[in-house]
């Protein structure tokens, strides 16, 4: 633009003066070469990684890790059975936790003051209590209520069972972890619901869509974009968090390898067995999350 040239250049310069050329430079070609910024950080990082690789090398070659033992136990029935329990417990707790959590989030945002307070109180209580304490509490509930019964209120009992028989360790694990998970899931879902533009809800109301349909068809699918990444985080956290049930003797992945090393004293290789399985499952979940995210990103720029 001649106007810009006039502004940038010395007013005494000739009309064909090029203000971008430094004085004394040879007449440059029109295509000037671009030199990118030097990536010194990348080289430093590479050096650090090289040092770490040497550590990994020592880990792999150190006989004390007993990789042979790792291989020996990696696919034994006991370990696989423990892995199976860890997996279905994770899936069940996450699913139940998010169903309950979604309900809590909707209550928390409802116009009903009583329900709002109930939801707030639940989230406050179960986020404050360590999950380990909660599991131990449920485990000892038999001391508080030795018997549970169904009957007419203030009248005769029709059916009575011993609490200990009704609530086995696995049931306690499901209840305790779900109640804990739901409190966190509620906040994740609430964050997602808040991320949906107010106009979306108004448009749905203006079209006469009912509350349930608005939630299911309009708000939740859009909230999922904000819900999925932290939910993926929680799923992976729950996968590893289920190992806490080993304290109440539920035979999950960790408890299964503990049973072996209490017998054989091969503590490190058996912990490696559990660790590698956790890594494998976490990696698979990560891939799954990518596809779920892509599904809920449909209709947005950059993801078709």
């Amino acid at each position: 633009m001649p106007v810009n040239d006039a502004v940038l250049s010395d007013p005494s310069a000739s009309p064909d003066h090029r203000p971008l050329d430094p004085p004394g430079a040879p007449p440059a070609a029109d295509a000037l070469k671009v030199v990118p910024v030097r990536r010194t950080g990348q080289w430093t990082a590479a050096a650090v990684v090289l040092l770490l690789a040497m550590d990994v090398n020592s880990l792999v070659r150190n006989d004390a890790f007993q990789w042979g033992v790792v291989g020996e136990y990696f696919t034994t029935t006991a370990v696989l059975r423990g892995l199976g329990l860890t997996l279905w417990l994770t899936v069940l707790v996450t699913a139940l936790g998010f169903v309950l959590g979604t309900l809590l989030a909707v209550l928390r945002m409802s116009s009903n003051k009583v329900l709002r307070s109930v939801s707030w109180g639940y989230i406050w209580l179960f986020r404050s209590m360590p999950v380990l304490v909660q599991l131990l509490f449920w485990f000892n509930i038999g001391a508080l209520y030795p018997q549970l019964g169904i009957g007419i209120p203030f009248g005769p009992e029709l059916l009575t069972v011993k609490t200990v028989n009704l609530l086995g360790p696995v049931t306690i694990a499901i209840i305790g972890l779900t109640l804990h998970e739901a409190a966190y899931a509620a906040e994740v879902v609430r964050g997602g619901l808040l991320s949906v533009e107010k106009g979306q809800l108004e448009a749905a109301q203006a079209l006469g869509l009912g509350a349930w349909r608005r939630l299911r068809r309009i708000v939740l699918p859009q909230a999922m974009r904000a819900i999925v990444p932290p939910a993926g985080n929680m799923l992976i956290g729950t996968l590893k968090g289920t190992s806490i049930v080993s304290v109440i003797a539920v035979q999950d992945l960790l408890y299964s390898v503990q049973l072996v090393y209490h017998r054989t004293y091969q503590v490190i290789p058996l912990l490696l067995v559990a660790t590698i399985w956790y890594v494998v499952v976490t990696s698979v979940l990560g891939v799954g999350q990518h596809y779920v995210e892509r599904h809920y990103a449909r209709g947005t720029a950059g993801a078709r």
Partner: peptide, 21 residues
Amino acid sequence: LKQRTHIGFVFQNFNLFPHLT
């Protein structure tokens, strides 16, 4: 909601549902 089905509303910012075709 039933009354609103008789009254069409067009918003300044369209408010189309972005996740639906």
